[in-house]
Computed example of a mutant assay.
Amino acid sequence: MDWAILLYISALIAAVAFAVLVIFLVRTLRSANRTLEHTANTVANLEKQLNGITIETEQLLNKTNRLADDIQQKTESVNSLFTSVKDLGQSVTQFNQSIKQVSNSVTTQVGEQSENIAKAVNWGTTALDLYTKFKLRKQHLDEPIKTQGGN
């Protein structure tokens, strides 16, 4: 009997231990279930937020693409303006070169003709001197004739 009572007491202790174990397991599983529900809610909220962020990101990307296209068009317009300015600069450079060539040509011709001009001035001066002397001599010769004819 002793063994039978010990066997019953052991079975009773095992049953109580199993009941306590089941109670703690149930509590733990309920706590884990609540934690999983909170995690599921959090994941659902994150999914909604990510969907919102995804939509906003797509809108931002579309706006960025439109802005990039606009910048590209404006850059092409500015490029044509710079091309025009470059062409104008080249025209002005060519005009300046033409002016320099004309100036150099005039300077060269004046240099070449300066000797002829100097000769012409000398001949002109000499001719003027001769004319003046001729006039003075003619006046000087005409004076005695006038005085003789009047007597």
Rank of each mutant, 00 (worst) to 15 (best):
E37N: 07
L6P: 00
M1H: 06
N65M: 07
V78A: 06
V121Y: 04
Q113W: 01
V22P: 05
M1E: 05
A120V: 09
I13G: 03
S77H: 08
K135Q: 10
R30W: 12
D87S: 01
L25G: 12
D87G: 07
N33H: 09
S103F: 03
D142K: 12
S103Q: 12
K74A: 04
A120Q: 13
L61P: 00
A40Q: 08
T42E: 13
L21R: 03
S103R: 12
N116L: 15
V16H: 02
K86G: 10
L61H: 06
N79R: 13
I9R: 13
E56W: 11
T83C: 10
A68Q: 13
I145M: 04
G149K: 01
Q73E: 12
E115S: 10
V85C: 00
G89L: 12
Q59Y: 02
F24T: 01
A4G: 08
E56D: 15
K86D: 08
Y131M: 07
T35V: 12
P144L: 11
T64A: 14
D70Y: 01
I9Q: 14
E37Q: 12
A44I: 01
N116F: 05
A118D: 14
Q90P: 01
I145G: 05
A127Y: 11
Q72E: 00
Q113N: 13
Q90S: 08
L36A: 14
N45M: 14
D69P: 00
L61W: 02
D129G: 13
A68P: 00
A32T: 11
L60W: 02
I71F: 08
T147M: 11
V26C: 07
A15Q: 00
K86H: 14
H140F: 06
I9W: 14
V110P: 00
Q49S: 15
A40S: 05
A32F: 14
Q113G: 04
G149Y: 09
K133I: 01
A120K: 02
I71R: 06
Y8R: 09
T147C: 01
K48D: 04
E143D: 09
N62L: 02
V22N: 05
K138H: 08
G89Y: 12
N79F: 11
A4M: 09
D70K: 03
F134C: 09
S98W: 01
D70M: 08
Q148I: 05
M1A: 06
A14Y: 15
K135W: 11
N151M: 09
I99S: 00
S84E: 14
N51A: 15
A14E: 08
F134T: 04
F18M: 12
S77R: 10
L29C: 03
